[in-house]
Nucleic acid binder design. Structure first.
Length: 461
RNA sequence: GAUCCCAUCGUCUAGAGGCCUAGGACACCUGGUUUUCAUCCAGGCAACCGGGGUUCGACUCCCCGUGGGAUCGCCA
């Protein structure tokens, strides 16, 4: 472990939306940097001009901002650094650590086929590795001159030491025939130039790492620390993908999840701090460390996300929650924050809401403009209660000087006694009449929040 | 096929040789509170992949097997 400053990066390729897997490695990188007062840098890996799309890039940046993963300095675009990469290629060509290759795609396909047929790993046969004659005309690629023997050890911070035989590694392409550099090469150059101290990424990159280490050594670069985190799986234990449902961070945002809940859920997936389940963002930053990462892949469970979302909603300031609901989920509950009775109602709604999108339906009955009663529901639930009882209740309420939840409910009890009815018979009718549904917060809370006039008015069928 | 990785309740995980009769959380089930639903509270169900070692002693260490995954592109 070096004592140089901690600098981490998230390096998405704008060829798709930010998915939960990518988000998690971003979270780990972000947390490590913040924990150690280091830097967290964003690098857009858009060297694949064909597949890279501006829409994806802005989608990714939006999701990052939403999650609260603020990065330091402006994002770096690899597409603007081709000259830099090419100059390093020239250096390597000159130093003899890379070489030109004129093999055509057809020839390569034939090689692969032949190797596979013999039960071997498909590899380039290195036919131009020591080529010295006159250079053929036509397009060429540049390949890295991988050592023919020896081994490369990856000292991974989460996986431990992993040893690779160099002979297993191909003379891979670092510059395409269209003069653009490839991923494995640009990563090495950028991580070096950006002084990245910790490379944190998905473990689908483990097999790329020895290639990168070899190039770093060939270029005389110091190695960064590596941490490869396990993949996130779907319920069927296969790599999480679209067919498992929502995979994009933005989809979760739309579905009404809180960024902190998302952060908490993703962090807890593959990382732990004893038995602690709930983490505020500050705690995440102060407690995160790579040694808490597990080695095995994990299944993403939406039920747990639901639970955490509820927990984080409860932990929020009411004002903050109201603003969020009003600005992003079209539900304005700001009037509920005025007065004790309605604040109690608001808290009751938070208790039962799982997602931010739930508040709309949960609170609909409270507002006259969205209050609806379904005749069928009324017919089947109110008829058991004699009209006379409801009339009596109306009189009781009208005469109730202090219409608190307790007093208003006491009226129900009084009427029940007078009319020789069971309380639930009346209470059920009242609930349906006042809220239009069979399930609502506690009657006392509902009555107090509604107030005498509205309660009395709604008692009429 | 080759290389590499992984393996504790259904799921996320704690566990770094004796503290484990394996703990917590989610989900699920039961009871209580709420004379509704939800919440909340109490309780319950439920796991160390298999086989060999090492050791006085293995969930923990080693080997083999089995299972799962990743990677083998002029994608990243």
């Amino acid at each position: 472990m070096s004592n140089r400053p901690i600098i981490t990066r998230f390096a998405p390729s704008p060829t798709g939306m930010l998915h939960v897997g990518g988000a998690r490695t971003a979270i780990f990188s972000y947390l490590l940097a913040r924990r150690h007062n280091g830097k967290f840098i964003l690098r857009i890996e858009d060297t694949d001009v064909e597949r890279s799309k501006k829409e994806f890039e802005s989608e990714i940046l939006d999701s990052m901002k939403w999650l609260g993963l603020d990065w330091d300095a402006d994002p770096i675009y690899q597409s603007q650094r081709f000259d830099v990469y090419r100059s390093y290629i020239q250096k390597m060509l000159k130093a003899g650590t890379a070489y030109k290759c004129w093999a055509t795609p057809e020839e390569l396909a034939a090689m692969r086929e032949k190797a596979t047929a013999h039960g071997k790993k498909p590899m380039y046969d290195r036919r131009y590795r020591n080529f010295t004659g006159t250079e053929p005309s036509g397009s060429f690629v540049v390949r890295f001159k991988t050592p023919l023997d020896g081994e490369t050890i990856l000292k991974d911070l989460v996986k431990g030491d992993i040893c690779f035989q160099n002979q297993e590694i191909d003379d891979f392409i670092i510059l395409r025939s269209d003069n653009t550099p490839t991923y494995n090469f640009t990563v090495v150059i950028d991580d070096y130039e950006m002084k990245i101290s910790h490379v944190i990424r998905g473990d689908d990159h483990v097999n790329n790492t020895p290639k990168q280490i070899l190039m770093m050594q060939a270029l005389g670069f110091d190695l960064p620390e590596f941490a490869h985190v396990p993949m996130i799986l779907g319920p069927d234990k296969a790599k999480l993908s679209k067919r498992h449902g929502a995979v994009a961070v933005s989809q979760y945002r739309e579905q009404g999840y809180l960024p902190t809940a998302m952060l908490n859920a993703l962090l807890r997936l593959g990382w732990s701090h004893g038995d602690q389940e709930f983490f505020s963002k500050d705690q995440m930053i102060s407690l995160f460390d790579l040694s808490g990462c597990g080695k095995s892949p994990s299944v993403f469970d939406v039920a747990k996300l639901d639970h955490l979302n509820n927990q984080h909603m409860k932990a929020m300031d009411r004002e903050e929650l109201v603003n969020l609901l009003r600005n992003n989920y079209g539900t304005d509950l700001s009037t509920l924050l005025n007065g004790d009775a309605s604040i109690k109602l608001f808290d009751a709604l938070v208790e039962r809401a799982v997602r931010l999108t739930d508040f709309k339906d949960l609170s609909a009955w409270y507002f006259e403009e969205s209050f609806v009663r379904d005749q069928k529901t009324i017919d089947s639930n109110v008829s058991a209660c004699p009209a006379a009882a409801l009339e009596a209740l109306k009189v009781q309420w009208q005469g109730c000087a202090d219409f608190t939840g307790e007093n208003a409910f006491a009226c129900i009890k009084t009427v029940a006694t007078e009319q020789a009815l069971k309380i639930p018979v009346i209470a059920k009718a009242v609930r349906v009449l006042l809220t239009g549904t069979l399930a609502s917060p506690d009657m006392g809370i509902v009555l107090a929040a509604l107030g005498k006039d509205r309660a009395v008015e709604r008692l009429s069928i």
